[in-house]
Amino acid sequence: MEKILLIIPAYNEAENIPWVIEELQQLDNVYDYVIINDGSKDNTKAICEEKGYNYVDMPINVGLADVFRTGMKYAVRHGYSMALQYDGDGQHDPHYIACMVEKMKQTNADVVIGSRFVEEKGCKSLRNVGSYIIQALIKLTTGKRISDPTSGMRLYNANVMKFLANEINMAPEPDTIALLIRQGFRVEEVEVKMRERQAGVSYLNFGNSIRYMMNICMSLVFIQWFRRKR
């Protein structure tokens, strides 16, 4: 039986964390999880403490990339064989976790992405336009079609976990997916449904979205070519 860990980054998610965790605990198959509190300014930490959730508390705010990396280290050190990147804002539906695990076992993939658009085309909102551009760039640089590169629901196996835990510049973002493909890791996708964020504020406002797109595109088009192979 494989051991699966859900890595849940949380920055100011006091309103969402309780029901996200409760929803997880109501599943038939109870997964291990770790909340990583990224120096939240609200009472996220107090809630985790009070309800006895399993959480790691970052002493300072370090941003998603390093929160995720810390989660990966946790997973590697506690001997998990799979790790799932899972949002703390309730966008991800835990009922799809089993599908993703199934897909990983079936196809022997190193990474399984929970995609919103494997079958249906996404509606043309601003975020999806960005997603198309990133998709095209990944296709261009790796030759592989990833239908939903910006999806934040990704399952990694032990090989990739070690890689992500030890290397720098391994943010849980589309450019890392492209890098993994070029390094010879196998990436598959599974159809999932996602919900709207239930409470609190998204990190991606308009200005941040533009900056995010710029960074990812720069990274995909220019930087990735100069990175050392494994």
Partner: peptide, 16 residues
């Protein structure tokens, strides 16, 4: 910056 963040992660895991 990356070293500070790395240390922060290690401190967090150690505290845990």
């Amino acid at each position: 910056e990356s070293r500070v963040k790395e240390l922060a992660g290690e401190v967090a895991l150690k505290n845990y």
